[in-house]
């Protein structure tokens, strides 16, 4: 059992933001898992101070065109495509 308090409502809210539909049983399961995940973060508090890396700033590139992928390559990982477009669900 975890120390972090996660309510079923929190899980439902996060699921709706991610457009994921969960049934009640899944919500219960994720309540447990979310709490565990939050607990893991507390472990980070125990990590000793270390020197941070040199602070980077102003990492930029010149405004020069580089080759893009071909349409076929771009669509290769798409579950569905149509006439060169990625195919996605209906949205509101």
């Amino acid at each position: 059992m975890s120390d972090s308090a996660v309510e079923p409502e929190d899980v439902r809210h996060v699921a709706s933001l991610a457009r994921v539909d969960l049934d009640d049983e899944e919500v219960d399961r994720f309540v447990e898992q979310f709490a565990d995940i939050l607990d893991y973060f507390e472990t980070l508090d125990e990590v000793p101070e270390v020197d941070s890396e040199t602070d980077l700033a102003n990492v930029m590139r010149d405004d020069e065109v580089r080759d893009s992928l071909d349409q076929d390559e771009a669509l290769r990982n798409a579950p569905e495509s149509e006439e060169g477009f990625f195919k996605g669900p209906k949205v509101s």
Binding site: R61, R66, D67, S68, Q71, A74, L75, G84, F85, F86
Partner: peptide
């Protein structure tokens, strides 16, 4: 990224990386 923004009426998904 270095993809061109000069897209115009080009075929879809031909300016991606």
């Amino acid at each position: 990224c270095g993809c061109s923004t000069d897209v115009g009426d080009d075929e879809p998904n031909t300016h991606t990386c």
